[in-house]
Design a protein around this nucleic acid. Structure first.
Lengths: 185, 185
DNA sequence: TATTGTTATACTCTATAACTATA
DNA sequence: TATAGTTATAGAGTATAACAATA
């Protein structure tokens, strides 16, 4: 069973496959690290979101509804990082389950405020407990530094949430990118 | 243009839609924060990965190939959090572009080690620079705490990467989950 | 028989565009 | 005319299952 354990430094082929500092490039990659943690998180919340229509994402929509700071579906979609059209389906299902309700805004009847029903509120509070368990279980890997990490992450997210709207994110990168490698050699 | 700015505390409907502490539930949500940051990251890397077949994920595969600690495609897929079958397609495209190469293991000819070609290595080094720019740009939102956050995140990811394999992630959650809310009231 | 990788197919998920209503 | 939301449809993405090669 899996006896191949990288039996030492291989003799290398004919061209320089050896990297100058290829020790743990992935571990140094911010995107990889974020992906790993996020995957573990959503897998943990899948259990906590059992029975909720949209799964973990549906539970997030419910959270946004409980929060009630969305205003309309558009900003809620942007805040959650999902398309407006798929949010429609998610809300449809949550509304069908009696967890949320579409409340047309009296000021601008095009806008619809998504609010949690009494039942949705109760369910949210119940599952919130499970979510805290998952979060603590994940952050336990950091020991005493868990709360510190949480605070930094939230600061970062709050910052990125504002700046992430338009293009921003550095135009300078384009300078470094010239050739196109999609074609064969 | 968007004159609806939440004109103060609304008078509330008939049932208690107001939450006990619904101020910023999303900001307290670890999953939401991770998602926001990850989205900003991948959007930033899309530019840095321009021309690379698989986009940001293809660049990640290339990184894994440069690292060379994968052993076979299966563990690489697990490490990158993608399905083995889709990894096949990604490697196909990268190989077609002359960036990586499938190297059958001499010890177990079922295993294929994915290694970067000279061209892939060069491209990786070039784009690595752009990736660092993106990461620094994101972490700049934390000021002096950027490096600290990076270190904590990497520790956490390395930890979760090991424990995330089997089920783990808390069985206790299941106890809290009983009813099914997928059906209508 | 078990495992690695590939392939084919079906499925889900996403997003583009067209439509309704409100402004 | 412009915007919010919905709907329909096409497209991308994903995963299940069957297969070939190797152990």
């Amino acid at each position: 069973m899996t006896t191949e354990v990288t039996p030492g430094p291989p003799g290398a082929g004919r061209d320089p496959d050896r990297s100058p500092a290829a020790a743990d490039v992935l571990k140094g990659d911010l995107g990889w690290a974020l992906g790993v943690v996020l995957r573990v998180y959503v897998r943990g919340t899948e259990t906590a979101a059992a029975g909720v229509p949209g799964g973990p994402r549906g539970l997030q929509v419910l959270s946004a509804a409980v929060e009630g700071t969305a205003g309309n579906q558009g900003v809620m979609a942007q805040r959650l990082g999902i398309d407006r059209t798929v949010l429609t389906y998610l809300i449809d299902d949550l509304e069908g389950a009696g967890l949320v309700r579409r409340q047309p805004s009296p000021h601008d009847r095009r806008n619809r405020r998504v609010v949690a029903t009494e039942r949705g509120q109760a369910l949210w509070e119940q599952r919130q407990e499970a979510l805290r368990h998952v979060e603590e279980h994940i952050l336990a890997g950091l020991g005493d530094d868990g709360p510190g990490f949480r605070e930094l992450l939230q600061r970062l997210a709050a910052h990125a949430d504002q700046a992430g709207g338009p293009v921003s994110t550095c135009q300078v990168i384009g300078e470094l990118v010239a050739e196109d490698y999609s074609g064969p050699a």
